[in-house]
Simulated scan of single mutants.
Amino acid sequence: MASERFEKIYVQGKIAPVTEIWIDKQTGVNYIFHRDGNASGFTPLLDETGKPVISTK
């Protein structure tokens, strides 16, 4: 199922581990998703000052 709110802009890896970067198209906030085996996580991508990375199109 395709999401209208989120867009995947980066993928590294195909089986395990996999790292992806997603953008929330409503807020511009970037998220990082990482999966390795049965474990995974999805969290905002932060810059060097600890603030969320926000993309503008």
Results as ranks from 00 to 15, higher is better:
F6M: 07
G37K: 06
I23K: 11
K14F: 06
G50T: 08
G41M: 15
Q12I: 04
G28R: 06
F6R: 13
Q12Y: 12
S40K: 03
P52M: 08
G28E: 14
P52L: 12
Q26V: 10
L46H: 14
L46W: 08
T27W: 08
V53K: 11
D47K: 11
Q12D: 12
R5P: 06
S3V: 02
I32L: 08
G41L: 15
W22P: 05
V53D: 05
G13F: 13
A39D: 08
G28H: 03
Y31E: 01
T19A: 06
I15D: 06
I32Q: 06
S3A: 04
I21R: 00
L46Y: 05
E48S: 05
A2S: 03
V53W: 01
S55W: 05
I21F: 02
P44L: 10
D47W: 02
S3N: 05
V18P: 00
K8M: 15
I15L: 14
P17H: 09
G28A: 04
A2N: 07
S3T: 04
G13R: 02
V53F: 10
K14E: 08
I9V: 13
N30D: 14
A39W: 15
V18H: 04
K57R: 15
F6Y: 05
H34C: 00
N30S: 15
L45W: 00
D36K: 15
D47I: 08
F33G: 01
A2G: 14
L46E: 07
T19H: 09
N30I: 02
F33P: 00
G37F: 12
T49I: 05
K25I: 01
V29Y: 13
W22D: 09
G50D: 02
S55Q: 07
I23V: 05
K51C: 09
I21L: 10
S40H: 08
T49H: 09
I9W: 02
L46I: 07
V18G: 01
M1S: 12
G50Y: 13
N38I: 14
K14R: 08
P52A: 14
L45Q: 02
K8R: 04
R5E: 07
I15M: 11
K14Y: 03
M1R: 11
I32C: 04
E48G: 15
W22S: 09
D36G: 13
T43K: 11
R35M: 03
V18F: 07
Y31M: 01
I54S: 07
F42P: 00
Y10D: 01
P44G: 06
V11H: 13
E20Y: 07
P17R: 01
I21K: 01
N30F: 14
T43E: 11
E48K: 09
G13M: 02
H34D: 00
A2L: 06
I54T: 15
I32S: 00
K8N: 08
F6G: 07
V18D: 00
V11F: 12
H34P: 00
V11C: 03
G37E: 09
G13Y: 08
I9R: 15
V18E: 00
K51P: 12
V11Y: 05
F33H: 10
G41N: 06
F6I: 13
T43D: 11
I32P: 00
G41I: 12
K51V: 03
K25A: 10
G50C: 12
H34F: 01
V29F: 09
Q12H: 14
R5L: 06
V11G: 06
D24P: 03
I32R: 12
D36I: 15
R35I: 11
P44R: 12
